[in-house]
């Protein structure tokens, strides 16, 4: 009798252990706020993340199977579209905005430059359906997935049955995107007292805290708000940002305050990619701000920075680069998953 109990006990411990290795605990870096994303509704597991990663890199999500999420969000440029002011999508169509860098998405409540998307799960629907981006339809994507052995297998692994739905597809994509956490830059090491800024970086940090941090707030380097930062309107695009969503005049010309993490790699800058270099961005803040009704209070008074001070701020901004993030093999093209399809 006792023997039996011991055996059952051992088996259950084994099963429990197996169960726990499948679940992935979301790591919140020290001194960071709690994430906004509700993980209880979509608990991370190894297999769901793997599925989401395959979907992220699969051009099947587009009408003619040419454009994947990664086409405009490539890892080496902090998951944005390097070198293109306006991102281009299907059939070389040029979009209206510069794709946003993807990182630390669990801490974001609203998505896109204008906050049109209210939840990470439904974010992917926008590029999938956009005529200039992927020009596809989520129902059609699901049908395509259902016809592929690879996804029958990956969905089975992730959900214990091979039923492929829109909900599961979107939630798996979220799972992968949630893992894109950047918290290992030199700045982070300095905050953890593992290393020190150079004199120039330290000076830049002091200037940054005085002039930039009210919007680009630590540790995420964004206050997650929508602000008018004084960019003159591009009359070819006529993009009024948040106003197009809320139709509220107070939101005219307001755009998402983007994170500055990995800013060294996510050029060009601004919602329309109008600035190629960080020095251009700083010159805008000192000399180019256009005053109008919705301009952020933070920019009402002129920002004064000498050219040496600008160089110091840029030196500090470069400490926000996170090589571990940019070259993390867990975020790259999932060769192995796609290989299983051929086997």
């Amino acid at each position: 009798m006792q023997k039996k109990i011991i055996i059952i006990f051992c088996i259950s411990i084994f099963l429990l252990a197996f169960h726990y290795t499948e679940n992935v605990t979301f790591f919140v870096p020290k001194n960071w706020p709690q994430p906004v994303y509700d993980f209880t509704k979509n608990p991370l597991t190894k297999n769901k993340i793997e599925l989401g990663r395959a979907l992220f890199y699969d051009p099947l999500l587009s009408r003619n199977n040419t454009i994947s999420c990664a086409s405009c969000h490539s890892q080496y440029s902090a998951f944005t579209h390097s070198d293109h002011a306006l991102s281009h999508g299907i059939d070389d169509s040029i979009g209206n905005r510069n794709s946003l860098a993807l990182m630390n998405l669990a801490w974001q409540k609203l998505f896109m430059w204008d906050g049109a998307v209210n939840h990470l799960d439904v974010q992917a629907l926008a590029p999938i359906h956009n005529k200039l981006e992927m020009d596809e339809n989520i129902a059609n994507v699901v049908t395509k997935l259902q016809n592929l052995k690879l996804y029958k297998f990956l969905f089975y692994k992730a959900y214990n049955d091979s039923n492929i739905t829109g909900e599961r597809t979107l939630k798996a994509l979220s799972q992968f995107m949630l893992t894109l956490v950047s918290s290992n830059s030199k700045y982070d090491s300095v905050m953890r007292k593992q290393t020190q800024f150079t004199k120039q970086e330290g000076n830049g940090y002091t200037l940054f805290k005085k002039n930039c941090a009210s919007c680009h707030t630590e540790p995420l380097f964004t206050n997650n708000q929508f602000m008018n930062n004084g960019l003159p309107l591009d009359s070819a695009l006529n993009d009024y940002g948040r106003y197009t969503v809320t139709k509220n005049a107070n939101d005219s010309l307001k755009f998402k305050v983007p994170t500055l993490r990995n800013i060294e790699f996510s050029h060009p800058y601004m919602h329309d990619g109008r600035f190629k270099k960080l020095s251009h961005v700083l010159n805008h803040y000192t000399k180019g701000v256009v005053k109008n009704k919705t301009l952020g209070i933070e920019l009402q008074n002129e920002v004064n920075l000498s050219s040496n001070e600008k160089v110091d701020i840029i030196a500090f901004l470069l400490t926000l680069s996170d090589k571990k993030f940019l070259f993390n093999p867990e975020f790259s093209y999932p060769k192995n998953s796609f290989q299983t399809a051929k086997d």
Binding site: A116, N118, V122, A126, H129, N130, I138, T165, L170, V245
Partner: peptide, 13 residues
């Protein structure tokens, strides 16, 4: 409520 049912806006949630 699955977003594949054609009853969900995509450019704006």
């Amino acid at each position: 409520l699955d977003q594949t049912k054609g009853m969900y806006w995509t450019w704006q949630s």
